[in-house]
């Protein structure tokens, strides 16, 4: 049976799609047959971040409505042969995701893959609810910032109440905190919530910390998942995230400020 993982946050712009692309790629790199699904109907972006936007012919909504077979809509990743992308529609609206339709597609994917990664839209409306409904595990992407932390807390409440597991009284969804856009130097200066602060507020286990980095933009510019940006902090941090998700122990990195010289310390910068 495949494991279904939702990447969610409530708030927009915190790094859900970046994380979905990197995390799914990381699982595939480790040899797992993986599919990553875009649930953001009408605001399709996973295809761009994965660099397959010109190969989209059929999408998730076509499959739900019987206009295409699943195999026609699945796009094989250009870098990893056991990774597939299921893009969403750019023209339909979120109501095109019917409960039954999503359930049928998920069931079919279960037989073909080890991991199903669901990239949730922002908000707490139907698109986000559909994305989390089938989840076995959730990655709650959070920025060290007040509105993101509050929205993550709200999403945790929804995960606990509105998922299939909650409705059936099964074991709850495994929740993982992923702190993104973390700037250790600003934390040290007391101008950004620390890792400990966010953990204390949200009270879920930490999966990893992705440092704030210009590499993320460079990766999305080119349509390359950030985990492939060789030798960068961000790629290493995402690899650690995948390893921890698979149950391996990895010490946290990139959570301390880099050492700065005397003049920098004197004048700031």
């Amino acid at each position: 049976m495949a494991q279904t993982v939702v990447v969610t946050s409530g708030k927009g712009g915190v790094g859900k799609t970046t994380t979905s692309a990197a995390f799914a790629s990381g699982l595939a790199q480790r040899g797992y047959r993986t599919v990553v699904i875009d649930f953001d109907v009408g605001l399709r972006n996973l295809d761009l971040v994965m660099g397959c936007e010109r190969r989209v012919v059929y999408d998730f909504i076509n499959v739900i409505h019987g206009e295409a077979r699943l195999q026609q809509a699945l796009i094989r990743d250009k870098m990893l042969e056991n990774l597939y992308i299921l893009p969403t529609s750019q023209t339909r609206d979120k109501d095109a995701l019917t409960t039954d339709g999503v359930a049928r597609v998920m069931e079919e994917l279960q037989t073909q893959f080890d991991y199903i990664v669901c990239d949730s839209p922002a908000g707490i409306e139907s698109g986000a609810l559909r994305a989390l409904y089938h989840a076995d595990a959730a990655i709650v992407v959070t920025n060290p910032e007040v509105s993101s932390v509050r929205d993550s807390d709200r999403i945790l409440g929804i995960l606990a109440a509105r998922s299939k597991r909650a409705e059936e009284g099964a074991e709850p969804i495994r929740e993982h905190l992923l702190l993104t856009r973390y700037a250790p130097k600003r934390v040290q200066g007391g101008e950004m919530l620390s890792l400990d602060d966010v953990q204390e507020l949200l009270r879920i286990p930490l999966l990893g910390v992705i440092p704030e980095s210009e590499v993320i933009l460079q990766a999305s510019n080119q349509g390359i998942p950030a985990i492939h940006m060789q030798g960068t902090d961000v790629a290493l941090a995402y690899k650690d995230v995948v390893a921890r998700f698979l149950g391996e122990e990895r010490p946290l990195r990139f959570v301390q400020p880099e050492k700065t010289g005397f003049f920098k310390r004197l004048f700031g910068g």
């Binding site: 807390d153 101008e191 602060d197 507020l201």
Partner: peptide, 18 residues
């Protein structure tokens, strides 16, 4: 320090919303 202000505000609002 603004981070501690943020933390205090969040503690209150999250407790209330929960």
């Amino acid at each position: 320090k603004t981070a501690s202000v943020a933390k205090d505000r969040l503690k209150l609002i999250l407790a209330h919303e929960r």
